[in-house]
Design a protein around this nucleic acid. Structure first.
Lengths: 168, 168
DNA sequence: CAGTATCCTGTCCGATACTG
DNA sequence: CAGTATCGGACAGGATACTG
């Protein structure tokens, strides 16, 4: 996760990773989204060293993912509230959760998402909100816009789809 | 991304990151899903050093994300085909792409996903395939299963939902 | 072309000690 | 409690040279 490796990258995936790609950042974001916003809560829940926590929190504030708010004065104490941008990151966490449950949970799932009313476990999938169709299907194509680099545009000149098994 | 930090972690998100959390791994997976499966293609497309590429490829094979297949003999040459597990990872990449486009694309989006028939840009969202309802909504709850650790179960004893703004 | 071998640097991360 | 300061280790990642 070196600065040099992604500096100037135009790929949106790389850009996302640039801001929140560190290992702890994702887990910190998850905790804050669940309402654990104080230093000691994060420290306890995650078992993270205080210096690392401090560093990551500052980076996340810098990236516009967390907002540093005083929740008490004398002494001054801050909590780290997720911004809209962080809330927007929830889908990434859900995707990772789902993937982990499906593939790296040999002894069973430890955490799942359920429909509150029915209690039935959700089947997470990325879809187009406009059509309801899964994005990882041949009905969807990745395209490079005019702002993409020349090389990127070349690579996306041919059809680039997920979900089509005979792609290669 | 040290081994020590996530060894023995039971959180599915941490588990996912454990296998594919490295910066390059995600981008390599994206390329292979688009059909770029040869060493030189990946080297060119990503601008990655050959030793790093070799290291990451072996790790991804080890993690069951890529399959090493000879595509020619004399001399023996291998390509790295994405497994079903890797295809299952597409949603994570889509989530990262979407997030990056929405929040870290100041000069505009470089790569987007479009509906092939209509050419209309997709609006990616994680939903429950069973109901079509977005998972980052109050209708869904995160719960700890019996296999979660004691501390995890305690943390999820109270309602843990995304999407409810007044959570904290 | 498809890698491997070596060396180097940055930095993530952990452990610990310290301060208001 | 909420951090900061400092130290050290492990490793991702880069650069380069080399082999079949």
């Amino acid at each position: 996760m070196q600065k040099t490796s992604y500096e100037g990258m135009q790929c949106p995936i790389a850009r996302s990773l640039e801001r929140v790609g560190e290992w702890w950042s994702m887990l910190i974001l998850r905790e804050t989204l669940f309402g654990f916003t104080r230093f000691y809560e994060l420290e306890e829940n995650l078992g993270i060293a205080p210096n690392m926590l401090s560093r990551r929190l500052n980076a996340l504030v810098e990236a516009g993912m967390l907002e540093k708010c005083a929740y008490t004065t004398r002494p001054i104490r801050y909590e780290y509230k997720p911004t809209d941008r962080a809330r927007d990151f929830a889908d990434v966490l859900l995707a990772l959760l789902s993937f982990g449950n499906r593939h790296f949970a040999p002894e069973g799932k430890s955490v799942t998402v359920i429909h509150d009313e029915t209690g039935i476990e959700a089947v997470p999938v990325m879809v187009d909100a406009r059509t309801g169709i899964p994005l990882a299907s041949p009905a969807y194509r990745w395209v490079a816009g005019p702002l993409a680099s020349q090389s990127t545009r070349e690579r996306y000149a041919t059809d680039r789809r997920l979900g089509s098994s005979g792609l290669a």
